[in-house]
């Protein structure tokens, strides 16, 4: 009986994880391409990188299993942990405090229906990654949740949780460019060949 419970628990977690991927629109249509241009592509990626490494994005893509908080990206207090599905553990599930929308007021929990970290089997770490490392990681379907380039663009441009970064609630700084500008840089990076910056670029 106990075994059964554990198995069903595991299945439900696996189901939840795959569901959260499926819930994103799968875009089969191709993405715009431009003549290959490693310089232009890399330049676009560096803009993308600045956004991804800003607190609003990086805080939920930490190097460890604890999310980060605040513009100074300190470890989330209260020993919050990722959990298998990226939505916390036991009585410390993200949605126990983070609602479907930002709770009004300074220092109140921000919110989104999908609030969480990437799952444990697909951690998509931003914190500490060099531009080259992050670019290669974003493009690698084994590390990016099985996304094609088109799906990657769609995720960055349209995903609701990603979009929260531009509506973060009171007292939180915004990423360094608007979402449309960010999406345009993502498209440009990929359209020009999706080059990863050289390892020398920090």
């Amino acid at each position: 009986m106990k075994k059964l419970i554990i198995i069903s628990c595991f299945l439900s977690i696996v189901g939840f994880v795959s569901l959260s991927f499926r819930s994103e629109k799968v875009i089969n249509k191709n993405y715009p391409t431009l003549p290959k241009d490693s310089v232009g592509s890399t330049k676009a990626f560096m803009s993308v990188y600045k956004v991804l490494m800003s607190a609003r994005c990086m805080n939920c893509h930490p190097s460890g299993n604890t999310p980060l908080q605040g513009d100074d990206s300190h470890l989330h207090t209260m020993n919050v942990t990722r959990g298998l599905d990226g939505h916390g553990v036991y009585s410390m599930r993200c949605s126990n405090c983070h609602q479907a929308e930002n709770t009004a007021g300074l220092h109140m929990p921000p919110g989104n229906p999908k609030w969480g970290l990437p799952p444990a089997n697909m951690r998509m770490v931003f914190q500490g990654r060099t531009p080259r490392e992050l670019a290669l990681q974003l493009l690698d379907p084994k590390q990016n949740g099985g996304r094609t380039k088109a799906q990657l663009i769609d995720h960055m441009a349209n995903d609701a949780l990603v979009g929260w970064a531009w509506h973060p609630g009171e007292g939180r700084t915004l990423p360094p460019m608007s979402r449309p500008a960010f999406a345009a840089q993502v498209r440009l990076w990929i359209a020009k060949g999706a080059y990863a910056p050289s390892a020398k670029i920090k």
Partner: peptide
């Protein structure tokens, strides 16, 4: 959810 939690599980669940 965890009938036999470790100290680490307790830290993770109870630090809120």
């Amino acid at each position: 959810e965890n009938p036999n939690p470790t100290d680490q599980d307790i830290d993770d669940a109870m630090s809120g």
